[in-house]
Design a protein around this nucleic acid. Sequence first.
DNA 1: TTTAGCACTCTTCCTGCCCAAGTGCTATCT
DNA 2: AGATAGCACTTGGGCAGGAAGAGTGCTAAA
Lengths: 348, 348
Amino acid sequence: MQNPGHIGPREREILTAIVETYISTGEPVGSRTLSRHNKDGLSPATIRNVMADLSDSGFLEQPHTSAGRVPTSQAYRYYVDQISGQATISPADQTLISDTLQGTVDVQEFLERTSHVLSLVSSGVGVAIGNAGPKNALEHVYFSRQANNRVLAVVVTKAGVVHDRMMRLERDLDQSDLNTAANYINENFRGWIISSVKTELRRRIEQERSEYDRLMKSLDELEKGGALAAEEPAKNIFVEGVANLVGNDQDRARLRDLVKTLEEKERVADLLSAYLDTRQEAVRVVIGLEEAVPEMRNFVLIGAPARVGEEMRGSLAVIGPTRMDYQHTITAVSYIAQLFDKLLNENT
Amino acid sequence: MQNPGHIGPREREILTAIVETYISTGEPVGSRTLSRHNKDGLSPATIRNVMADLSDSGFLEQPHTSAGRVPTSQAYRYYVDQISGQATISPADQTLISDTLQGTVDVQEFLERTSHVLSLVSSGVGVAIGNAGPKNALEHVYFSRQANNRVLAVVVTKAGVVHDRMMRLERDLDQSDLNTAANYINENFRGWIISSVKTELRRRIEQERSEYDRLMKSLDELEKGGALAAEEPAKNIFVEGVANLVGNDQDRARLRDLVKTLEEKERVADLLSAYLDTRQEAVRVVIGLEEAVPEMRNFVLIGAPARVGEEMRGSLAVIGPTRMDYQHTITAVSYIAQLFDKLLNENT
DNA sequence: TTTAGCACTCTTCCTGCCCAAGTGCTATCT
DNA sequence: AGATAGCACTTGGGCAGGAAGAGTGCTAAA
């Protein structure tokens, strides 16, 4: 080596060969095996030298003396950087994905199918999350009296997402009160961001508190009941393909913790939102997930924001073992992210 | 033995002791161990004789000569029959359950929390399913134009369940057409069972086809778009606690298949509906689930219908290993089934 | 700079062996 | 006659030891 830590073309070739071999076999890879399977006839000894350098630079690890080498997180990161960009999606995946997602009309349905199809094409868990987000503009609301003191609120947003919420109120309002209130909100706030509606409404109610306005009292009641509350976040989180993880070689206890974590969908949502944001252009690969979630040691996240135009409407990702087919998964995630924009734009 | 297959008090006592020991240890139980742990000082030899009889009658099995005995499905069934009725719920479970379920206002929320709490109190998977069922009466519908050709249909039922559905229509209808159509349906069909609304509406449309009625044309369009279609069944199926199964001693492949099956929620729904029906009074314990679902060998279903009055609104169940705390789980399921009636009746 | 050879280190797998636990059968005790 | 004790037999688990396979580092040669 001319420079410790330097990666020349030979080192790169050997490193990617090691990573790929390890991904497909799961066994620590040794110099002899590598020299056999690689066409360019480098002898085991040469490879050993390179391997020693790569170990020094932190790309490889040995489980114990005299076992093969195993790629470190650093190696995976390097590998992913190498292959990114040169990927094109396989026709099989492409048709599977477009067939599944074709004909979806709203965001929720798209996300649900996305999580499903991602779990199919990858060897990991497919995750898709809808973003309530700040850009959630009101289309209209609708209140319906159900029984004494119980009212159903239906909130429709510009994005075509429907939130329905059953509320229990302090006082009983009859349907005509409810209609008046709904009309008031629809006429005054159409196109507003929902959280702003909430605060502005609160302000107006406070302001006019003195005048015993019937409308304002209704609004007060409804707002207190949570008519415009942010909907339960769990509703737009789709996680599928947990079964894919069960076949792996990890120990029982960690697997159980992992499945438990994935069942708590909010935690998955937090994870995605921690690593994905609007500014990023394409697919992001996060290696070393155990920093955020200990039970996800040896797992990676391959995700992308789901955008319509400039607006981030959600996130989609695959969570899978470090030993996964990166090329395959990255192209799939990227392809779906593009489809998202295309399909939902043409429907608007 | 005076009669092959006869179970006297001694046999019963030994059989339940075997079942309970096996449930708690998971090891085949032998005569010596049993005689030590049981207070009544029967010698191992005596127990062996009884065990031999029980094996002949099909209650016990040996993995191999000279291992202990393992209970068969028949033994579990007998055991469950023995303990049923004499069960009372533990105070800890009771408070946990009522605290979790208190304050739910609609069926969906109740079911979701139920699946969660069942997965907590049992060592299995908690399942809760809402029944669209034949008694699903229409409260009202509401249509909202979203974009060209796209219409949102909101269907509210008497049970307080909301179905919203985004449709794409052949022709474009404007909002006033939609309002007229909604009014027509609400005035004519309030209180009808939804599927009947669908067929009756179809009939009327056919009948008046000749007269070029604007209203009828709108209705035709909406009905074709699936405005009153039965909502996707997956929406009311809640499955939680899959992580509970991962700690078990089964082999990897079967565990993976099992998790996969549980992810296909429709299959879980089919399973419940196959074993639970309205007529049955209380909790039902199904042992030998592998007959319906092969990958569920060594699993049992403990379920009950969720009723409000006489009407079956859903099903709730625990799916767990044969080696589970039956008493505990049975009482929990039973308690929740009762709560369901109580809580949802008082809200109506 | 690459390759060949060599001594050394680990892990894995197989083998043989013993031991604990359990069984069935028969003879004996109350 | 039912319960118990004794005995020969079976079987899986655990442990020691040895051979095999794969891999490594280092040195010397092409």
